[in-house]
């Protein structure tokens, strides 16, 4: 069985974002790039599944759509433990075109389980995984909070409003994962970092596609009005303000 983990390259989550060129693009000066947190957890889970030999997983591959400059992020994933990587050599212009490229990778590689994070921390699109499933017409389970294998069959918990369901489906499938999928992201050990240098990264050229959406500009929300401080000895004043000024309780 082969697992494909789709990874996105995003600014470190503590970045104070700024924009350039008429607010069209992220100002990447000083930005640290990392594997999207959800994808890191999803990779961790894929590796945990592979560690258990009885699951019979032959490889965990990471796929990324992006230019050569995102290679450090791919190497990071290899250092954490992925066996190999595929990079589609083009800019990630919108979620549909990324999904289309990834769907090609899935077709070519014949993966059994494709894992995507619920969203990337930059575009917050919640779309790529679902689009891959829609494009390939393979079973999709979204809001996945745990993924196991039971005799070659995926055993999944998915979060529902007000509960969770334990479900199963046939392979190949796409799992869109969220909180719970792994506890802590796995960290690259020295040995992993050394080994990552020689692991294969296959670079493929993109298929023809056009973006369906485009960001025209970004805006940083106006800072909220300054905080109004209330004397800790006078908690009743806060309740009064919430009732009469904010009118929300």
């Amino acid at each position: 069985m082969k697992i494909l983990v789709c990874i996105s390259n995003v600014p470190d989550t503590t970045t104070r974002v700024k924009f350039t060129e008429g607010n069209r693009n992220l100002d990447s000066t000083g930005v640290q790039w990392v594997i999207n947190p959800w994808d890191e957890l999803s990779l961790t889970r894929a590796l945990e599944l592979k560690d258990n030999a009885s699951n019979g997983i032959s490889s965990v591959t990471v796929a990324h759509v992006g230019p050569a400059s995102s290679e450090p992020t791919i190497r990071k994933a290899l250092a954490i433990g992925a066996d190999d990587a595929v990079r589609v050599n083009c800019d990630a212009s919108d979620s549909y075109s990324v999904a289309l490229q990834l769907a090609e990778v899935v077709k070519e590689g014949g993966y059994d389980i494709v894992m995507c994070g619920i969203e990337s921390s930059d575009h917050n699109g919640s779309s790529v995984g679902g689009m891959i499933a829609g494009l390939l017409d393979v079973p999709l389970v979204s809001a996945v909070s745990s993924l196991d294998l039971r005799g070659g069959e995926p055993l999944i918990s998915r979060e529902m409003d007000g509960g969770r369901e334990i479900v199963t489906t046939s392979l190949p499938m796409v799992a869109v994962v969220q909180k719970g999928i792994a506890k802590e992201p796995r960290i690259a050990a020295m040995r992993g970092i050394m080994m990552a240098r020689s692991k294969p990264v296959k670079v493929v050229e993109p298929v023809d596609t056009a973006a369906l959406t485009e960001v025209i500009e970004y805006e940083i929300p106006a800072p909220r009005a300054a905080c109004r401080f209330i004397d800790p000895e006078n908690a009743a004043e806060l309740i009064f303000l919430l009732q009469n000024e904010a009118k929300i309780i």
Binding site: Y96, S127, M131, A133, G134, A143, L212
Partner: peptide, 24 residues
């Protein structure tokens, strides 16, 4: 809705119709 179910189905519809999706 941009909730569990909306996040599940919206991208599939987008892929099927090749329609642009604005999430959230």
């Amino acid at each position: 809705a941009n909730n569990n179910q909306g996040k599940g189905v919206a991208p599939v519809i987008a892929a099927r119709l090749a329609a642009g999706l604005a999430a959230g």
